[in-house]
């Protein structure tokens, strides 16, 4: 052990002091920080599927469906309305799309613009999506409309949460 590496008494005390201070800060803050970040760590309540419509109602033309879900927000419980555009594509598969524009969150409408009768149109910034939800290049949105989780049970269509594609 060379002299240079020896720890002086003052240095030793400084290290101990830092350690004790760190212990106190950690003891105080650990529960509080865990308390604060709790919403991040809580498993997101996978919203149940809600029966929205009969499968027979679905056509090749996107239709707008509305339903409500019970939302528990901490101590506040409320009913929230959800909407979706649902249709059968050419392969007879059901497609359910969220109406929330991936640009800035306006609500898109289907065929509301006369120039593009078979596209989803966002009135806010003229964003457009083709019928399968893919954003038209050159319009503001940068990502397709997120699909909505669905299930068909006993002839009824059940809809759930929009599946975020991640990294929009």
């Amino acid at each position: 052990m060379s002299d240079k590496k020896r720890v002086s008494r003052r240095q030793f005390l400084n290290y101990t002091l830092t350690g004790v201070g760190g212990f106190m800060a950690a003891g105080m803050l650990a529960p509080m920080v865990r308390f604060a970040i709790d919403p991040v760590l809580k498993p997101s309540g996978a919203g149940g599927l809600v029966s929205v419509a009969s499968v027979e109602e679905l056509t090749n033309e996107p239709q707008r469906f509305e339903w409500t879900v019970d939302q528990v927000d901490g101590w506040y419980e409320s009913e929230v309305q959800r909407t979706a555009w649902v249709y059968r594509n050419d392969n007879d598969e059901i497609v359910a799309l969220s109406p929330i524009c991936t640009h800035l969150g306006c609500t898109v409408d289907y065929g509301s613009n006369e120039e593009y009768p078979d596209q989803f149109y966002c009135p806010c910034h003229a964003g457009r999506y083709t019928k399968d939800g893919v954003n038209v290049p050159g319009t503001p949105p940068t990502a397709p409309l997120p699909p909505i989780e669905y299930e068909v049970r006993e002839g009824m269509l059940y809809l759930g949460e929009a599946q975020s594609e991640g990294g929009v």
Binding site: P31, M32, R34, F35, D38, L41, G74
Partner: peptide, 8 residues
Amino acid sequence: EVAYGQIV
């Protein structure tokens, strides 16, 4: 409901 809420 909140973790450590009791403690804080």
